[in-house]
Amino acid sequence: MVTLQILPYSEIEHLASLSRIRKILNIAKENKIVLIQGRLKKEEEAELIKTTMEEIDKDFQGIELAVIYPRESKEEGMISNIKNTLINTLLGDRQGLTIVGPASIVKQIKKDPKKIELLTTEKRSISKPKSKPGSAKKRK
């Protein structure tokens, strides 16, 4: 089963960069996929990768990360620029979506202008036979 946790930006906006990264990573380490409403700063993305690397061990292989930016407006000009500046000022240039998933669950995140594909890893559990084939024959 795959668990998806939605993280509204309001839950992390008051946090300092390192605490924000810590919160996201803690959720991913619980084997949950985090969907963050908003996006991290570029420097925070690099810090997230750095912190992830520091914590890799036999149980945690890292993360898959994808940032989806809002579609850029094709209209150019002063009005569009003012509109974008205003939105960025209000939201702190954090528009978009961020997906962080543990690498043990998320194999790849493919981005397409119209869709996001999240490919999960296939884990096949091979159940051990209760008795050896040879021993079953013996019982016959």
Binding site: K41, K42, E43, L65
Partner: peptide, 15 residues
């Protein structure tokens, strides 16, 4: 080329 690692590296250089 649209992998997040590429985008993060280039974004950090831009920043």
């Amino acid at each position: 080329p649209y992998s997040q690692v590429n985008i993060t590296i280039i974004g950090n250089l831009q920043a």
